[in-house]
């Protein structure tokens, strides 16, 4: 079971490393594509990271802005997928 803050922190760490950004510039609701943080290859590497770190595979039809626009949406996407894989475990979401 993973908690959302833990997931968000890992995503943030990945983004900071991948984009050479400054921590204070990236909030949970920063729009990653609008800010130019990720292009096509950046998104592809992010999908690799999600697969390697959380064992979550992204499918063709899941590649929509609602799942990837910000740290919030990526974390929600990951947790939803994990919940589908392990439905009996409780997921705590802090908003």
């Amino acid at each position: 079971m993973k908690e959302i803050q833990d997931v968000k922190m890992k995503i943030l760490q990945y983004i900071l490393e991948a984009t050479s950004s400054i921590e204070n510039d990236i909030k949970d609701n920063t729009l990653l594509f609008d800010e130019g943080l990720f292009d096509s290859m950046g998104l592809l590497f992010l999908i690799d990271f999600i697969r390697d770190e959380f064992k979550v595979e992204t499918k063709d039809d899941e590649l929509v802005v609602e799942n990837f626009s910000s740290i919030n949406s990526i974390a929600a996407f990951i947790l939803n997928k994990l919940e589908l894989k392990e439905p009996k475990k409780m997921i705590i979401i802090h908003k």
């Binding site: 594509f33 609008d34 990720f38 292009d39 096509s40 950046g42 998104l43 592809l44 999908i47 063709d60 039809d61 590649l63 929509v64 802005v65 990837f68 626009s69």
Partner: peptide, 14 residues
């Protein structure tokens, strides 16, 4: 590319 161009997300290939 499976996404439509009108989606606000970078293109990723299938």
């Amino acid at each position: 590319i499976k996404q439509t161009i009108s989606q606000n997300i970078p293109n990723v290939f299938s």
